[in-house]
Write a protein that binds this DNA or RNA. Sequence first.
RNA 1: GGGGCAGUAGGGUAGCCUGGUCCAUCCUAGAGCGUUUGGGACGCUUUGACCCCAGUUCGAAUCUGGGCUGCCCCA
Length: 477
Amino acid sequence: MSDETERLPPRSDFSAWYNEIIRRAEIMDVRYPVKGLYVWYPFGFALRNHTYTHLRSLLNRDHEETLFPLLIPETEFMKEAEHIKGFEDEVYWVTHGGLSPLDVKLALRPTSETAIYPMYALWIRSHADLPLKLYQIVNTLRYETKHTRPLIRLREITSFMESHTVHATWDEANKQVESELVLSQEFYHDLGIPIIISKRPNWDKFPGADFTMAVDTVMPDGKTLQIGTIHHLGEHFSRTFNITYEDVNGRQQFGSQTCYGISERCIAAIIGVHGDDKGLVLPVTVAPTQVVITPIIINKRADEIFAAVKTLEKELKATGLRVKTDTRDMRPGAKYYHWELHGVPLRVEIGPRDLDNNQFVCVNRLGIKTVVPRENVVESVKMLLDDVNDQILERAEKHLKNHLMTATTPEECNERLNGNVVVVHWCGYRDCAEKLEKLTNSTILGTEIRNKYVINGENPCIICGKMGKTALVGRSY
RNA sequence: GGGGCAGUAGGGUAGCCUGGUCCAUCCUAGAGCGUUUGGGACGCUUUGACCCCAGUUCGAAUCUGGGCUGCCCCA
C-alpha cells in the first residue's frame, strides 16, 4: 500500500516528517479531493478506535454516551449571540432539500451546544435530574480558511468527543470543570503525553463561556498543540435555551453548564510527541498491534519455527494482548522496518538459534533488546511492554521540561520561542498581550498554569512592569 | 489575512524554459514464477501516469486563462 524503502525525512524537519508519516504509516490518506477532508486508513482508524475506546472507558465512569443529530435549525443556532459571533464565519449551511429551498436553513454542526440544549430544556425538570452529564463522539464541520492539516486543522473533525453537563449551581459546574481536567490529565498520562493546563485569556475563551481551560502539549518543533478544552458556560446557554429546574424550595432555577471537547488532535499528539526518525512510536495502551512476532525462517526448519510461533501467539493472545505474526515472505530486516514505522511497541523474534536455546529475542520500539527464556514468556512480555510505556512517557516529559523556558524581556522571549514555549509574567491587560504577541509573533496561551515544572507567582509584567501573573506564551498550531 | 511555488503510474522523479524526437525517463511499489530469509534479497516476465475546463496552434505534458488540490514563507 505504501512505499517503505525510502527513508523518512528526519523528525527534526517536523513538517515534512509529519506529512510523510501520515501517509507512510497509513494513518490518513490526504488525497480526498476536498480541502481539509481526509480519509482514515484502516490502520489509522484502528489507532483512533483504541484511543477513543480508552477515552470512553474514562468518561463512562460518570458520564453517559448519547448521539444528537448533525443538522441544527438556523432558529436554534441563532439564539445565543456570542456563540453565533464565534462561529458564523465557519458554518456550513444546508440550504436545499433536493431542488427546493428550505424554509429554515440547517447548519452542519460546528459543535453541538445548540443541538443539545433545546433537548436538555425538555429533559430537565427537577433538581433530581441534575447533574446531567452526557457526551457524544461525532463529526463536526467547520469552514476553516487557514492552512488545513491532517488531524490538526480540519474542515471535518471526524472524532469530536464533546461532553455537555448541567448542574444546579455555578460552583457545582466549576467542580465538574476540575473533574474534566483530572480526566484529561489521566487520559494523556495513559498516552504518555505530558500536558500543560492553563486558563485562556478572556478574549480567547469559547464563544458563550464564562471561562475556558485549555490543555496543550508541545510538539517536537516547539509549537504548542491544543488537545482539549473545558468550558464553564455558567448560565449563558441555560438562560437562552431555558434550561431550568425546580429546586427543593419549589423555585425555578437556571442550570449551570460545562462543555468539554477532545478531537483527533489527540492522535496528532501521539504521533508528534512520541515518533522518531524511524516512524511512529505508539503507547501500548492504544497501539493497534502491541506485539509483533517475526519468525526467522530457515527452509529446513520452517515447520518447527512456525509451530513455535503459533504457540507463542496463542499464549499471548490468551491474555488479551493484541498480537500479530508476520509470516510474509520478506527478509526479516524489511519486516523490522515495517513494524517500526507503524510504531509497534514490542517485537519478538523466533529463529533456529532461539529454538535451540529455548528462548526468544525481544526488541522494543526504542531499540532495547532483551533475550527472554521460553518459560514465563507471557510475564516477560508484559513487563517489557510496561517498560516501553514508562520509557516513552519519561522521554516525552524530558522533552517538555527542556522546552519550557522563562523570559523577562520581549527580546528574550522572542529568542527563546524558537523551538520552545516560554513562561513570562503578564499584567492581564489585553494591550500588553497584543504588544507581546506582535513583538514575538506568538500567542498568550493562558494563566493559572498547571504543570509540575511551572511555578505560578506574581512578578512585573514583561511589557508594562506592573505586577502580573505567570503566563504561558507559545507559537501554536 | 498577505505572498511564493507546485500538480506526470500507488509513492518519488526526468522531460516543460526553446511545442513535434514522448504510444513519456529512472527509482520504488503491485502481479506472476523461481531461488532466498538473524536489519531494507536476487533473477526473469508483467501491470500502471501527463489534475480538471477552456483557449492558442497543423500539433500541447510543455504556452495562456480560470478552477480544484497541495506545499512553503510572512502577519
